[in-house]
Design a protein around this nucleic acid. Structure first.
Length: 361
DNA sequence: TTTAACTACTCCGACTCGCG
DNA sequence: CGCGAGTCGGAGTAGTTAAA
């Protein structure tokens, strides 16, 4: 999981357990008025996922609930949440602080699966995003991921917005029936969180071979590159670029990243070959491909001017890049290309002069 | 040795989007 | 609905390279 979150070191220290946590609360605002009335915890033991839920049956019992949860956090090496950095952990810490209790999470490593999930699956043209938007649903919500990654569709699940009002109804009436689906929702969220985390960890461990398609390979490559695993990143980009079923945007970005990697490591000839391949991709008028083709023309112009000493070729490519400059940053990029063109013209004129001069002698 | 061009950083502000 | 972690693009800067 270190690959998935650079800040994360492998579990060590006193605890030994990886603990998945999900809260149901009385609202979203997160201030002192928001209470976690259900704390779900899950961990792997004896070959299965064990789930334990702490339900607050009255406000008076909150201190006891927090103490029981703190006890459950003992022996935890790693806490895993979904958006927990922003939501679950601050809510819990506020409650412990409110009761002037010790903070059981101090010193416990925390892995928030939301951000790696976005890196891995947000941009899937055929997957999470497209499917989610068709449903009017957000792209990387936990329930969306479980549907797209595992083909699971929840039946009769409680919408999150309904959860606080169901709890208030329970407090007023004492009837726990409206809470049953909330407990089930929390349990499913924990199972999903564990499954999504395990799936991401498998991808990170097994690399490009474990990817289902080019789009996932491209995303995993970005994750590896961020983590400094350059060779594994290149393997993923290669897989994405050569995937015959991959969308042209996916291939284009994969080639672009392979080319950048070559150039950064001063393998200029290999980089140039990739820029040529990128220019040969048939991307139609897709904005990303238009920009990548322009970028490749500019990079090839640099290569021809400075490495191959082919001023005419460089000029031709710079002209192409200028023609293809488009979009929001048109002016900045076109300006740089014009600057390049005028320098190339100057150099070509000098070359011509020196030839003439040489010829007269 | 000087100079221009390129590259790789860092920093900052403006976003986006998940949670019940 | 509010909050905040993370991302993205632009601007500025320091270091590197190679030609003259």
């Amino acid at each position: 999981m270190r690959v998935l979150d650079g800040a994360l070191a492998p579990p060590d220290g006193t605890g030994s357990r990886i603990l998945f946590v999900d809260l149901e609360t009385t609202g979203l605002s997160g201030g002192a008025g928001t209470i976690a009335f259900l704390v779900g915890c899950a961990w792997f033991d004896i070959g299965a996922l064990q789930v334990r839920q702490f339900l607050l049956t009255s406000y008076a019992a909150e201190r006891a609930l927090l103490a029981a949860v703190a006890e459950c956090f003992d022996d935890t090496a790693l806490l895993v949440t979904y958006n927990g950095k922003t939501f679950d952990v601050p809510v819990m810490e506020t409650r412990w602080l409110f009761h002037r209790m010790e903070m059981p999470l101090d010193g416990v490593r925390h892995f928030d699966m939301l951000h790696p999930a976005r890196r891995l699956w947000r941009d899937r043209p055929d997957g999470v995003a497209a499917d989610a938007y068709a449903d009017g649903d957000a792209g990387c919500r936990l329930a969306t991921l479980e549907r797209v990654l595992f083909g699971v569709r929840r039946v009769g699940d409680v919408p999150g917005m309904e959860i606080p009002s169901r709890y208030f109804r329970f407090l007023r009436s004492g009837n726990a029936a409206p809470l049953e689906p909330v407990l089930e929702h929390n349990r499913l969220d924990l199972v999903s969180l564990a499954a999504v985390t395990a799936h991401a960890a498998r991808l990170a461990h097994e690399g490009s071979d474990a990817c289902r398609d080019g789009s996932e390979a491209l995303a995993l490559g970005r994750v590896y590159e961020r983590a400094g695993a350059v060779d594994r990143a290149l393997a993923c980009y290669g897989r994405a670029a050569r995937d015959s079923h991959a969308a042209v945007d996916v291939k284009g970005e994969a080639l672009y990243r392979i080319g950048l990697r070559h150039r950064r490591e001063r393998r200029f000839a290999e980089a140039a070959a990739i820029w040529r391949e990128l220019r040969d991709l048939d991307g139609g008028s897709r904005p990303l491909m238009t920009e990548l083709r322009r970028f490749a023309a500019e990079a090839l112009a640099v290569h021809h001017e400075h490495r191959e000493r082919d001023l005419e070729g460089a000029r031709e490519l710079a002209l192409l890049a200028l023609e293809e400059a488009d979009g929001a940053s048109f002016h900045v990029k076109a300006e740089a290309t014009r600057h390049r063109l005028s320098r190339l013209d100057r150099k070509l004129a000098q070359k011509k002069d020196s030839h003439l001069f040489g010829g007269c002698i």
